[in-house]
Design a protein around this nucleic acid. Sequence first.
DNA 1: TCTTCTTTGTGACTATTGTTACAAAGGCCT
DNA 2: AGGCCTTTGTAACAATAGTCACAAAGAAGA
Lengths: 220, 220
Amino acid sequence: MNEIELSALKQILPEITDPFLLEEMVKHGGVYYFEQGKTITEPGQFVKMVPIVLDGAIKILRMDEEGRELFLYYLEPGETCALSLTCCSASKPSEIKAVAEEHTKILGIPVQLHELWADKFKQWKDFVSSTYQRRFQELLVALDAVAFKKMDERLMRYIVTKMKQLKANELHTTHQEIANELSTSREVISRLLKQLEKKKWIELGRNVIYVRDDFEELMG
Amino acid sequence: MNEIELSALKQILPEITDPFLLEEMVKHGGVYYFEQGKTITEPGQFVKMVPIVLDGAIKILRMDEEGRELFLYYLEPGETCALSLTCCSASKPSEIKAVAEEHTKILGIPVQLHELWADKFKQWKDFVSSTYQRRFQELLVALDAVAFKKMDERLMRYIVTKMKQLKANELHTTHQEIANELSTSREVISRLLKQLEKKKWIELGRNVIYVRDDFEELMG
DNA sequence: TCTTCTTTGTGACTATTGTTACAAAGGCCT
DNA sequence: AGGCCTTTGTAACAATAGTCACAAAGAAGA
């Protein structure tokens, strides 16, 4: 566990300027690295720290009792997970699965400090509050998708989200993995992807999907 | 707009004991009444205050562009809505619909005060924080239902939730209304209810569903 | 009672999604 | 090249949910 440099922290969290808070974060926050694809938290595990993404990205998935999963949202640099905040505070086990989407660097803040800082530092309170807001919105987006959209549209939105996260127009993944994250079967995804290919909106290869630049406009 | 009595407020929010905070709430909070079935907030409207339920109950529904709706959760006395907190803070229009489920009494806290109190009163901060936590959990429950459950199970869970809210084992509602809140069609609900009746788990009448006492155990 | 409106029941049909089963193609290793 | 494993393609079929059409029952009022 290394320390983070003050300058790096300032750059990633520009909204935090309070030198006392920054000092505390550098002093007590531990830096952790996770390789791509590595599971960071699984349902049932207890959350011992609030993870702030420094570099890379984390994929947050909801899981049910049968082990099915559902993609919720990404955590990008400077962001943290509202669920970790609620789980810590209530000292309840995690309700979700978190996976490193790329090679990811994290600043872990011990749970007890989160509580303390919320009383002491206005900027930390604001950070937590804006996290809750952002995650709430994203949870509603995820809810809208499963409640109101059909699988073809959900798949297209998934592709767009993933492209934006990767800042690329090719996805290196398998149909099976997409199916898992949308909580459906591989055959359904293969079928729908084939339809998109027929419409010339994407091209399919083994372990790769090439997406047309104007894909998002096409979906409307 | 009336004032609320201090004693009533203390009873509904036992976790708030700070006399200064209580005084502020009595002084600046407005009391509002909504008849059963009355819409309190609709999507697109701006939220001008944080509503704390004093008496009755509020039903929170998510809506999509086409006007379809989805039941999320109830607000019971002493509770408030996380979405109103996020909407206010971001001064964005409401993303949800709120309907008085019974004759309901509300204490409305002006938005600006919420921000102010969060800095000033630890108990208000804790109240907001625990609201976020509770609503987050409930949103996840709603998400689980649409993502992982079939309509028959969603219907049964809906019946149980409604029964608990009403503290009764008969529901006075129409198939159409249930269908709306589960975002499906009336025929589907009529069909599934008929199956439950055949299994002798419920009895159907016009505008009423009688539910067996051991309904929840039967569903498993 | 007769009319009218709302609510419920149901059959038939369509659409979407999920499942089973198997073939074929692409990589990788020896 | 030959063998092995992963991934993708696809047909056929089942299950679930959504839609349409219309009948029948119940409630309310004239």
